[in-house]
Design a protein around this nucleic acid. Sequence first.
DNA 1: ATTCTAAATGCAAACTATACGCATTTGCAT
DNA 2: ATGCAAATGCGTATAGTTTGCATTTAGAAT
Lengths: 145, 145
Amino acid sequence: MQRSENFFAHLGMKNTQGRNHLLDVLEKTEIPLTAEDIYLKLKEKSIEINLSTVYRILDLFVAKGIVSKSTSSISNKSQFELAKKEHSHHLVCIQCKKTLTLAGCPLKCYEKKLKNKTQYDITGHKLEIFGYCPDCKFFANKQEE
Amino acid sequence: MQRSENFFAHLGMKNTQGRNHLLDVLEKTEIPLTAEDIYLKLKEKSIEINLSTVYRILDLFVAKGIVSKSTSSISNKSQFELAKKEHSHHLVCIQCKKTLTLAGCPLKCYEKKLKNKTQYDITGHKLEIFGYCPDCKFFANKQEE
DNA sequence: ATTCTAAATGCAAACTATACGCATTTGCAT
DNA sequence: ATGCAAATGCGTATAGTTTGCATTTAGAAT
Ligand SMILES: [Mn+2]
Ligand SMILES: [Mn+2]
Ligand SMILES: [Zn+2]
Ligand SMILES: [Zn+2]
């Protein structure tokens, strides 16, 4: 699917097939994807694009603010998703690495209190939550027995 | 320094020289260290230990709960530090790096809600807060003008 | 103290995620 | 249609980490 022809042009980028394909995948997913996830999803649809190119396009998208990149302490791969206007946090399965992007931020109020208490001018935070996903938690509990 | 001879034994580990040396380094540092940091600090003291072994010992320490492993968003290397009994969070000045350890955790309640909403079995989280400390925020504001 | 054995270590090589150089192809302005 | 800068494919490099295997060591048994 070709987007409005000046979507990329507005951002000073050529409107290439590869970029359109990546954007298609990123628009369709609900969970953050690794470069390889994207590469494989395209391969399944018989869209051959070099993994190097996937990395290069993702770098570009991040630089242009279209996509946000995150790294979890649990996985050793970077993950990518469409940049949300609202910042968000991730819930990561420590077994299968499945990652949910969480809506909303639980720290708004806490930051205000901190600001008063510490006199720091607070500019941001990084929060990551770990656990076992529904698919993995059964086996995790079994193993402990 | 040799620790009490059954420190390692209690945890089902052999009391080896390498493990003692790593623990010495980790006990002395105030900042998290990478495997290579540790390797080099030991080399400076003419303690030769293979980098593979450093990684193996760190893995073991993490598995035994002696050490906690983290990855910063800045670097692509894992960092290691002695595991604290009470988990805590840090408020870091992004200019001078001055760090406050914060009392209490603002996420207890949020985690319960998440558990219900997502069906994940939540086991932990990592939170870091950034800002300007009282000493730095004046200059930070000036610069914006 | 000496002997014995499983576990730990050193070393080289493998592995994984990501980046890069360069020849070829593509998008797009002319 | 043409020309050219930018994007891509492909092979290779790099960095952090892990692994297989031969050797050494810790600590239990004698
Ligand atoms: Mn937040
Ligand atoms: Mn907490
Ligand atoms: Zn899972
Ligand atoms: Zn400061």
